[in-house]
Design a protein around this nucleic acid. Structure first.
Lengths: 217, 217, 217, 217
DNA sequence: CATGAATGAGCTTTCATTCAT
DNA sequence: GATGAATGAAAGCTCATTCAT
C-alpha cells in the first residue's frame, strides 16, 4: 500500500507517476522494470519515490489495484446485477467488457493478464492469492444459480468450471489480440470483432465442439 | 546452440550443468536467473560457462530443447500415429502424457509452460514463434481429419479451435497441480487423478457445459 | 558530458576525481584505464561514478575538455590577438606556451598529445574531428594574413602548411621531453631550454635545412 | 621471439597466422587485440598459439619484425647505397618508398606507424628503443656526409635534424592518406600523387616556408 | 515533505594464459 | 607437436534502496 504521502499528492502528480509506472511495467515486466527509469520518466526525485512507496513491489501492487478499479468501471449493467440474467449472458458480458477494456487500455490489460498467466512468479502469486477468494465466490454464486435454473449441466464440478471460465477469459484476450486483430484489423468494426470473438468462446463453452449428430454419449 | 565444447563434455558433467540450469530457471525464471549461481551450483568456472554457451539465452534455449526432447519420450503409442485414432482419444492422450511428464519432471514442465504462458516475453516469443508453425500444422491435420470423419462440428473456425486446444492444454496442467494435487494429494492414485483431470477437460471440450435439455438455441 | 550530479559536486571532490582520472588515463591510456582503479583511487563508490558520468568515454571527454581549458590559460598575450603580430612570432608563442603548459602539466599534455598522435583510435578520431574545423580555420586565417604580408612563400599549399605546423607542434613536445630534458635536465634553465627548442623548430620552418650557398634551385 | 615450433611450421600455416595477426592488430591495436579472435581466424588451437609464441607481446614483436623486413624490400636502389647520392635525393627516396609500401600494405604500414606515433605505450617504447640506435646511426652518417658536401646548413643540430626527419616521415604518411587520397582519389595516378606529396615535404625541408625576398635574417 | 547523492552487491561477459592429454 | 577445456581475475555497468540535508 502506498504511503500517506502518495495519497496526499495532488491528483495530477499522482497520475503522472502511475502512468510512468504503467508504461514501465507494461514494457519491461515486474522484474526488469527499473525504478530509475520510472522516476526519470515522471520527473520525481528518487528519494520521493521511497517516500510514496515502500518499494518496487508496493508500487506494482498499487498499480494493479488501480487497473482493477479501472476495469470495474467497464463492467456493463448486466454485471452489476449478475443474478438477474441468464448465465451465458452474464459470461458474455464479462468477456466482452474485458475485451473492451483491453482495447481501450492495452497496457493495463497486459499487466492484468500477466498476473493471471504468470502466477508462478512470487509477486503474482501473492496478488493472485489475495483476490482469489473473491473471484471464486463470485463465480460460485453465478454457477450455483445457473444450475438451479437448469442452465448448466449438473454433472460438472464447480471448482473445475471456475477454472475453465477463468482460463478461457484470458484465452479470449489472446485470441482477439493475436488472431483477430492481427489478421484483420479494421478500425471501424472493433465492437463487431469483439462480439464475434466473445461469441466464439461463449458458444464453445456452451456446446463444446463435438458433432451432436455423431454423438452417442 | 551450445558450442562444441559443451557437446564434447563427459555426459555426467553435461547433465550436472543442465540440471543446475534447470533448477535455476525453474526457480527464478529467465530474467532473474543468475549465471553466477548456476556456475557455483555445478562447480564450473565462470569462464568455462562461456566456453560452453554463447550466453544466458543460449543456455536457456538449449535447456528448452532438452525439455522438448524429454517430453517427446512421454508420448503414448496413440500419439505416434495420431491419425489412426479418434480425435478425442488423441487429445486425451496428449493431455494425459503432458500431465504424466509434468508429474515426473515438474521443473521441466514449469519452464516449458512458461514459454507458452509468458509469450509476451521477448525470449519466449522468439522460441514460441520458431515452434508455432509445426504445432499449428499438427493440429490442423488432426482437426481436418476429425471433421471429415464427422467427429467435430463443422461450424467452428479451425484457427479458433487450435487456440482453444492449446490454451486448455495449459489449463489442464494448472488445474491438476493447483486444484487436484493441491486438494487431495495421494501418492498411490496419481495416474487415476491425472486421468480424471484429463477427462474433465476432454468432456468439456466435447460437450460444453450447457444443459442439453434446457438448451433452446 | 558529465551529468549534473558531477557538476553539483563540491569543488574539492570534483578535483579529486578529475585528478584520479588524469593519473589513470595518463598512465594507462583510454583502453587500459580501469574505472575500478579510478574509483578506488578517489574513494568513491562505483555506483557514484556512474551517477557522475555516462561511461568511461564520458569521463575521458570531460577530462580532455578540462585539459583544453587549462591549456588556453597558458596562452600568451601574443596569441590573444594573433593577427597583430608577425606570423613566426605567433607560431613561436604557440609552440612556447604549449611547451610551458606541458612542463607544468605533464600528464595533461601527454593525454592531449595522444589525441593528436593516436588519431586512428575511434575515441580520438571522434574528439579530433570535433575540434578539427576550429583549428584549421584558425591556421587558415593566420596563413592567409601572413601571405598577404609577404611573410610566407606563396607557392605553398595552405592545407599542407597547416598539416606541417600541427605535426611539428607535436614534434616540438617530443624533442623537448625526449632529447633536451632527457639529456640535460637543469631545473634552473627550463624557460631557456624551452625557448631554445622552440627556436630550433621555428627557424627550421622558416628557412628549411639546405645550405643557401650550395642551393641551386 | 617466436619459439622454434613456429619457425618449423609449414610456410603456409605461418603466413596464415601472421596474416590473422596483422588483421587483428591493425584493426584493434595491441591492447584491444584478442588472441581468441586471432586463433579463431586462422583456425589454430589456443594451446598451439602458446607453443608458437611466448605471449601476445611475442607475436606482436614478431609481426613488427616481419613488417620491417617487408618494408626493406621496397627500398629503392638509391637507398641501397645512400652515400652515393645527394642528401635530398636519398630523403626523397626514403619517403617515397615508405609511401609506396603503405599504399600496397596499408595494414602493415598502419601498425608500423603506431610504433612511432604511440611510443609512450610500454610495448612500443620497448620496440622503439631497440631500433633507435640503428636508425639514428643511419641518419647521422647521412647528415654528416651531407654537411661535408655542403648540402646542408652547418648550424643545425644533428640530433634535432634526425628528429625532424623522422617526424616528417610520419607526417608524410598522414598527409598522403588523410588529405591527398581523401580529397582526390584516382586509381590511375597513385605514383604521381605519392611523388607530389613527397616533393611537398622535401621542398619544405629544404627551403622552409618563409618568403626569401621578405626575409631579413 | 522533497531531494538527489551515495552505496556496494550484483550483473553478464571477455581475457590471456595454463596444462593434462 | 597439437589440442582445447579450464581457469578466475577483471572488465564496464545497473540496480533497488538509504539517508543526510
Amino acid at each position: 500500500m502506498p504511503k500517506g504521502t502518495f495519497l496526499n499528492l495532488p491528483e495530477l502528480k499522482r497520475q503522472l507517476i502511475e502512468e510512468a509506472a504503467l508504461d514501465e511495467f507494461a514494457t519491461w515486466g515486474f522484474d526488469n522494470a527499473s525504478i530509475n527509469r520510472i522516476v526519470a520518466d515522471c520527473q520525481i526525485a528518487k528519494g520521493s519515490f521511497y517516500q510514496y512507496f515502500e518499494d518496487k513491489k508496493d508500487l506494482y501492487k498499487h498499480l494493479l489495484s488501480c487497473i482493477a478499479h479501472k476495469k470495474i468501471e467497464y463492467i456493463s449493467p448486466v454485471l452489476q446485477n449478475p443474478m438477474a440474467h441468464d448465465f451465458f449472458t452474464v459470461l458474455q458480458e464479462m468477456y466482452r467488457s474485458g475485451l473492451a477494456f483491453a482495447q481501450e487500455n492495452p497496457k493495463a490489460a497486459l499487466i492484468g493478464n500477466q498476473v493471471f498467466k504468470n502466477r508462478e512468479h512470487p509477486i503474482h502469486r501473492e496478488v493472485f492469492d489475495e483476490s482469489k477468494e473473491t473471484a471464486v465466490a463470485f463465480y460460485q454464486n453465478l454457477i450455483a444459480l445457473a444450475i438451479e435454473r437448469g442452465e448448466l449441466r449438473t454433472d460438472i464440478d464447480v471448482r473445475f468450471m471456475i477454472h475453465i471460465l477463468m482460463s478461457l477469459n484470458v484465452a479470449t484476450f489472446e485470441y482477439y489480440f493475436e488472431v483477430v486483430k492481427g489478421a484483420d484489423f479494421n478500425i471501424t468494426k472493433i465492437d463487431e470483432d469483439i462480439m464475434e470473438t466473445v461469441n466464439l468462446f461463449i458458444d464453445f463453452i456452451r456446446r463444446g465442439i463435438s458433432d451432436p449428430i455423431g454423438e452417442k454419449i
